[in-house]
């Protein structure tokens, strides 16, 4: 689905070159839920931005369904983004002047697509915000805002959902709600999700955890059914 090859990113800050990504080979399969973990400054957010086409790498390639993102113009990347990618951010980033309904409809409008109001209401139900369509962001709690943001990120049925610290601004309980929600979309609808987090609790929801350290992948672990059984017997012994 999405694959990076030898991804490098160097930032120029005040004449000083900082290497944020130092050669990342990374891929996500369709239907996977991957968590990217690591301390701040380890390059995990930069990777997410590159995956979303918000930026281009200094070196290396990003392939989304075989399309090399780094070879596309900014406009082309935006169009790919609004068709294939959904974004969820730490600080929700709802558009304050738009109602909940309008926020969710935004990606469709931006792409000039017909707005499917049935789909929007279905999504609102799915994120447990039935009847909130006419509210405005400032009338909602943080957790509710993030659920709107998830609905907005999914309205155009993106191939891949990119979530950048989606629980970073929430307490543990609200975080669990959000993660359960993402998990449900992953399990019930096979939604591919890449989530950046520094929170072990959040990362645990994924199928796979990729640990970043100093711009490189430090280690990677995957949960498989047989090692779950093995885990249980060991854990309970």
């Amino acid at each position: 689905m999405i694959q990076t090859i030898g991804l490098k990113k160097v930032f120029n800050t005040g004449g000083e070159k900082t290497s944020v990504l130092k050669g990342i080979d990374f891929s996500v399969q369709k239907g996977e839920f991957v968590a990217i973990m690591g301390p701040s400054g380890s390059g995990k957010s930069t990777l997410l931005q590159l995956l979303g086409g918000l930026d281009v790498p200094t070196e290396g390639a990003i392939k989304l369904d075989g399309v090399e993102l780094q070879k596309k113009t900014e406009k082309q990347r935006t169009i790919i983004r609004r068709r294939k990618i959904g974004f969820v951010f730490q600080s929700y980033q709802l558009l304050p002047t738009l109602s909940v309904y309008e926020n969710i409809a935004f990606p469709l409008h931006a792409d000039g697509r017909k707005v499917d109001s049935v789909a929007i209401h279905e999504l609102l139900n799915a994120v447990d915000l039935k009847g909130y369509d006419k509210r405005f962001p400032y009338e909602l709690s943080g957790g509710q805002q993030q659920r709107v943001a998830i609905a907005r990120a999914l309205i155009h049925q993106p191939d891949i959902l990119l979530a950048d610290e989606p629980t970073g601004n929430l307490d543990r309980e609200r975080s669990s709600d959000i993660l359960d929600l993402l998990s449900a979309f992953h399990q019930d609808r096979g939604q591919t999700i890449v989530m950046v987090t520094h929170d072990l609790f959040a990362a645990g929801y994924a199928d796979r955890i990729v640990l970043f350290k100093d711009g490189l992948i430090e280690t990677e672990v995957q949960r498989e059914d047989d090692d779950y059984a093995e885990f249980l017997s060991r854990f309970m012994a």
């Binding site: 072990l200 609790f201 990362a203 645990g204 929801y205 994924a206 199928d207 955890i209 640990l211 280690t219 672990v221 995957q222 949960r223 090692d227 779950y228 885990f231 249980l232 854990f235």
Partner: peptide, 10 residues
Amino acid sequence: MKDVLNLTQL
């Protein structure tokens, strides 16, 4: 880390 994944599952 694997334990984290499995514990979350549990």
